[in-house]
Design a protein around this nucleic acid. Structure first.
Length: 452
DNA sequence: TCTGGGGTCCTTCCGCAG
DNA sequence: TCTGCTGCGGAAGGACCC
């Protein structure tokens, strides 16, 4: 999908269509998750510090992500993909590989193009959004094709043309080559995929290590045999928080770690999992990051056990100078526990905050009504003016634009933050007409993995 | 001016066991 | 008993992806 989060917001908010929209963390330490193409013109891109984005595009709309909405749109798209083939491998909310051959929906170039074109049309009809498709004989090439197709396009890489296509491209085009590997290769005088292939496998292994060297050499020759894998097992579950201001108080650090442990276990249990290895992550004031881990005798999903392990791990970490991020994770996952066999918690679990699934707000800071948060971009409903979204808030006021996905650009009004007529609302569907059953996709055609 | 959150995979090092 | 080799699991860190 093209600039997915930003596109969803534009579809949801008519007044933002054609405008620079930046979605990400709005706190002092936020980063850009997605920028609309209009915002990219100003040089804004994902992973950029939000402070920098604000300087580059001061007039853009800045919104916090609404993952629940993005997930529901994503599910609509994945459903269309699954109609093409049982082999669909989601990479994220907005990207997936599809094995068209396994689905019988493509057997040659022509049928692949048809399937891709129909998919793009279906995505637009069902979600109102644009998606780009890369068609090729391997995952790597399909991915590169879909990048080239963005925004709103389709690229088919014909068999036999792969090496000629890849050769002149930057090594950074290849999946797995990030800033560090890119620099490493540049220092060795390797800039393009052709140069990568010329360097030879032994040299790449020497430069980058065994696994990475072998993999990159194969990719430079356009060899990629990785299958499309529909079901991927989760290997770890973690939560982390970056704090607006570094935490110096050791007691506060310990409290935060306990809260993170509880949140992590809640997620773990939500997925029906347990795990053996507890990991504590600490990012210090100077951005140096360290992890400490402890492996238990058996898997657990007991909050008391995870809290205690996390606390023990924290004991071994020096936090003087302050911490900017804390995280707790669990790996070595299983779908059962051994608590019956091993009593791992010293004192048993007298309280179980994790059981309270409805608890979402932090236990300590309960916001008073006057401080109710109105996150920028979230939907609201007003008793008189109807459906709208929060354009901004502050100084006891909240500004709302009243519009819906299928209305024209709406009007703006400002209220007191504690106005009883104003309440948070669920997002409205992006496309009002619900698609009829079976209307999505009747297997088209195609010759390889596609990327939505 | 700083640098999120949630993951995966790989490498290196170390201790232990055979 | 000591030493070297090898394999393995755990710990820690790094790179990468969206």
């Amino acid at each position: 999908m093209d600039a997915f989060y930003a596109s969803v917001e534009q579809a949801s908010k008519p007044s933002l269509r054609g405008k620079a929209v930046i979605v990400g963390g709005l706190g002092p330490r936020g980063v850009v998750a997605t920028a609309s193409y209009e915002a990219r013109v100003f040089g804004v891109h994902s992973a950029m510090p939000m402070s920098q984005a604000r300087r580059l595009a001061p007039n853009a709309a800045f919104l916090v992500p609404r993952f629940t909405l993005y997930r529901s749109v994503s599910e609509q798209v994945m459903e269309l993909l699954r109609a093409l083939s049982p082999l669909v491998e989601p990479l994220s909310l907005d990207e997936a590989f599809v094995d068209l051959e396994a689905g019988g929906s493509a057997w040659d170039e022509r049928s692949a193009r048809l399937a891709g074109a129909k998919l793009r049309a279906d995505i637009r009809e069902v979600t109102g959004l644009t998606g780009s498709v890369g068609l090729a004989a391997s995952k790597m090439l399909a991915k590169i094709g879909s990048e080239q197709a963005k925004p709103d396009g389709l690229v088919l890489i014909e068999p036999g043309t792969e090496r000629a296509l890849l050769g002149p491209l930057s090594v950074r085009t290849l999946p797995g080559v990030g800033p560090a590997t890119g620099d490493h290769l540049r220092r060795a005088g390797i800039h393009t995929v052709d140069e990568l292939a010329e360097a030879g496998e032994d040299e790449l292994v020497r430069l980058l290590g065994r696994a990475h060297g072998h993999a990159l050499y194969a990719m430079a020759l356009a060899r990629d045999e990785r299958p499309v894998v529909a079901e991927r097992e989760t290997k770890s579950v973690s939560v982390e928080d970056t704090y607006d201001i570094d935490i110096h108080d050791r007691v506060r650090v310990a409290t935060e770690v306990q809260r993170l442990a509880d949140r992590c276990v809640r997620r773990l249990r939500g997925a029906g999992l347990s795990g053996r290895t507890i990991v504590l992550k600490v990012r210090r004031y100077d951005f140096s990051t360290l992890t400490r881990s402890e492996t238990l005798r058996g898997p657990t999903d007991d909050p008391a056990v995870v809290r205690e392990a996390a606390a023990r791990l924290l004991d071994a970490v020096d936090t003087t100078g302050g911490v900017r991020l804390l995280g707790v994770g669990v790996s070595g996952l299983a779908d059962y526990t051994q608590e019956d066999l091993f009593a791992q918690a010293a004192g048993g679990n007298e309280e179980d905050p994790v059981h309270d699934e409805t608890e979402a707000a932090p236990a300590v800071e309960v916001p008073t009504p006057a401080e109710r948060r109105w996150p920028a971009g979230h939907d609201v409903r007003h008793a008189v003016h109807g459906h709208g979204w929060v354009q901004g808030s502050g100084l006891g006021r909240v500004t709302v634009r009243f519009e819906t996905p299928d209305s024209g650009p709406g009007r703006v009004r400002t209220f007191r933050v504690d106005d009883p007529a104003l309440e948070p609302a669920d997002p409205l569907p992006l496309v009002s007409r619900a698609p009829k059953e079976g209307e999505g996709v009747q297997a088209g055609g195609g010759a390889g993995p596609a990327d939505g």
